[in-house]
Design a protein around this nucleic acid. Structure first.
Length: 691
DNA sequence: CGCATGTGGATTTTT
DNA sequence: TCCACATGCG
């Protein structure tokens, strides 16, 4: 094995991390510093130099993508690895799932080995059914999910008093019982139950290696802690500058916590191999963590700052720009466009489609996003598990597909197993006996006579049929690959599809496809591109303001976006944004970048697209919009746009009339109105018009 | 059913 | 801030 050769290729910091032997070690890995390379080298080094079997290592990541990348790169570097040796390699959830299925004494918590994993929606369905059956009094059912989550956290009996005087705690308990009865676990149950059992039943691997630790939440940290034995060594890699998911529970000081809890040694990987100097220098302006960020590349390319009249104009500009870049020999896949909000992609999609620019939008669409497939999966769920009443009721009483009977009758016939009343229920019951000989997808389709239940007359019929065919093919292939009897294969497929999501609706977003990538700043984490356009760097949009937002996180998000760029970075803002949240003018973040790094391509006479303007005006009129824009005013707007920071801003409010701005920051604005006195507004919500 | 009052969400997303 | 939605009373 040539791991020694690999080691020589690393820089001194990387090598130190790989060779480190402390009981616990946290590596502060900067953006683009070869974090994955270090992880893989570490694993290979431990295996070959320290003679540690892959089976004695647990390697944890947060996404399947990251897990697959590690596994693939490992298998590529060492052909002797067998897939089953890497069972401890994967996401937190998949490793916990594996432990529950194969190692831990799951019967102690009254589950059976063949339990199913359910998605949040299904858990909610079960909860709603319990409410109905037990006639519970639950208020605010529209917020049920959140309320249940909160109820679960409270453990002390005496504190279990509902704020709304209803049965929420009783429901939480019944739900827990019902899930055990139906042998189902939600995503969070997987980790929680694993934690519960690991307290008694020790695994004690020799090494625990964690990627992107900064994203861990409390349960995940607990999982690490429970997994770790006396002699287990810990190696964690992460970057405190890339914490952009604290809103979904990752604690901010994970690195600090680990350091103190396990007395961990702290190392760092300071050298960035990805970006050009100007990009790195700009990125440093948004770095909060004081760690060193060193560049390794000589190229000096300025950062472009541009303004556009509105998103539509920008999309048109980008079409030309992308074509120009592509002509110069850059493949489309090296170009990416980032934005803050999902909605912002629409304009780009429309304009690119019209102008033949190949593109992909990064949005996860899996089975649960397709109503038919969702329905069909529930159908199979009941087929393989006849106790799964909730799925059967869903299948029979769905409003789009199936027999469309009322929920009440559906519940009745399912409970009574009254197959005479429902042909579809009979088919599902009989499927167990008839499916053993199934070899091709068509047999399943014909057995159920799906045409009957998805209706050839409906508008979505063609898409639905295609989706069903695709899923059936995938199932058949899956079963063939596993070399299992059809029923076992189907059961396992349904079990895993919930956790891994099968990409049926979306073409592979693999970087092989040569297309421009459109995504939110959040989705860009972990990727890199030669050309990066960050759009809508507007006042009010980046940073996006809400009441309890942590400003710092928005800065880190912008940092992540900037550091995706290898060679070319263009920031743009709108002078007349269509989005409600955005105010005209550039974000404060643009001023945080030193001017010497910036090439300001401010367009004075914006070539306003007249046709688009006309359309907008017509739309505005059609809506009976209060702010009637006359064609003249609108055309003048981009020229009028001149931000005069020094002068006192005059504003008008639809209720309070005109007034002058007293105080203004990113969040709040204070205005003294002529007739109403001083009022304070949260900027993102105030409909103030700047005069 | 109509109306007054109460409540919290607004944005990002993985398993 | 402003909106949607749920609740509860008459």
């Amino acid at each position: 094995m040539n791991y020694e050769k690999e080691l020589k290729r690393l820089n001194e910091y990387q090598r130190e991390a790989v060779l480190d032997e402390s009981d616990a070690c946290v590596v502060n890995a900067n953006v683009g510093s070869g974090k994955t390379t270090v992880l893989i080298s570490k694993i290979v080094y431990l295996h070959y130099a320290k003679d540690i079997s892959y089976k004695d290592m647990i390697v944890l990541t947060f996404t399947n993508k990251a897990a697959n990348e590690i596994k693939e790169r490992l298998m590529a570097s060492d052909e002797s690895i067998k897939a089953e040796e890497l069972e401890g390699f994967g996401t937190f959830h998949s490793v916990a799932l594996h432990l529950l299925k194969e190692v831990l004494p799951i019967e102690k918590i009254r589950y059976e080995k063949d339990f199913l994993v359910i998605e949040p929606d299904e858990e909610l369905d079960i909860a709603l059914q319990i409410i109905q059956e037990e006639k519970l009094k639950i208020k605010y059912k529209n917020r049920l999910k959140k309320r249940l989550e909160q109820a679960m956290i409270i453990e002390k009996e005496e504190e279990k008093i509902s704020t709304y005087d209803d049965d929420i705690f009783k429901l939480a308990e019944l739900l827990k019982e019902e899930k055990i009865k139906q042998n189902k676990m939600s995503f969070s149950d997987i980790l929680q139950n694993a934690n519960l059992l690991l307290g008694e039943h020790k695994i004690e691997p020799k090494w625990i290696i964690i990627d992107e630790v900064q994203d861990s939440d409390k349960i995940q940290l607990d999982f690490i802690d429970k997994l770790k034995g006396e002699n287990t060594k810990l190696f964690a890699v992460g970057d405190p500058n890339q914490v952009i998911y604290s809103w979904r529970g990752s604690s901010l000081n994970v690195v600090y916590t680990l350091k103190h809890k396990y007395n961990a040694k702290e190392l760092s990987l300071p050298i960035n191999y990805r970006s050009s100097n100007a990009i790195l220098e700009a990125a440093r302006c948004f770095q909060q963590n004081g760690s060193l960020l060193m560049g390794a590349r000589e190229t000096e390319n300025k950062i472009i700052v541009k303004n556009h009249y509105n998103p539509f104009n920008e999309a048109c500009y980008l079409v030309d720009k992308i074509k120009e870049i592509h002509k110069s020999g850059v493949p489309y896949k090296e170009i990416a466009i980032f934005y803050r909000l999902q909605d912002q992609s629409q304009v780009f999609e429309d304009v690119f489609l019209k102008n033949d620019i190949p593109f992909e939008v990064s949005m996860k669409k899996t089975i649960s996003h397709s109503p038919v497939l969702n329905w069909m999966i529930k159908l199979f769920r009941f087929c393989v598990n006849p106790n799964d009443f909730s799925s059967a009721i869903y299948v029979l009483s769905n409003k789009e597909y199936g027999e469309k009977i009322t929920e009440k009758t559906a519940r009745k016939i399912v409970k009574e197993q009254n197959i005479i009343k429902s042909e579809l229920l009979e088919k599902m019951h009989e499927f167990l006996n008839k499916c053993s000989e199934i070899k091709i997808a068509e047999e399943i389709y014909n057995y159920f006579e799906f045409d009957k239940y998805i209706k050839p007359t409906s508008a979505t019929y063609i898409d639905d049929k295609e989706a069903i065919d695709a899923l059936l093919d995938i199932i058949i292939e899956y079963v063939k690959e596993k070399q299992m009897p059809f029923l076992d294969g189907l059961r396992e497929f349904i079990n895993s599809s919930a956790l891994y999501g099968v990409n049926i609706l979306k073409k592979d977003i693999s970087s092989d496809i040569d297309s421009v990538k459109l995504m939110t700043l959040h989705a860009s984490k972990g990727l890199e591109f030669s050309y990066v356009f960050i759009t809508g760097v507007n006042y009010g949009l980046i940073p996006l303001h809400t009441r309890d937002m942590e400003e710092e996180e928005e800065q880190r998000l912008f940092f992540v976006g900037i550091t995706r760029a290898k060679d070319y970075l263009e920031l743009s803002y709108y002078t007349n944004p269509d989005y409600q949240k955005a105010a005209p003018g550039e974000s404060r973040y643009i001023h945080m970048i030193p001017e010497k790094l910036i090439q300001n391509d401010k367009v004075k006479n914006n070539n306003v697209n007249l046709q688009e303007l006309k359309k907008q005006i017509q739309e505005a009129k059609a809506k009976g919009n209060k702010e009637e824009i006359s064609a003249n005013e609108a055309v003048e707007l981009p020229v009028v746009e001149e931000i005069n920071e020094a002068s006192i801003k005059q504003v008008s409010h639809k209720k309070y009339g005109t007034g002058k701005v007293l105080k203004e920051d990113d969040m709040m604005i204070e205005v003294e109105f002529e007739k109403y006195g001083v009022k304070e507004f949260i900027k993102a919500f105030s409909e103030l018009e700047f005069l």
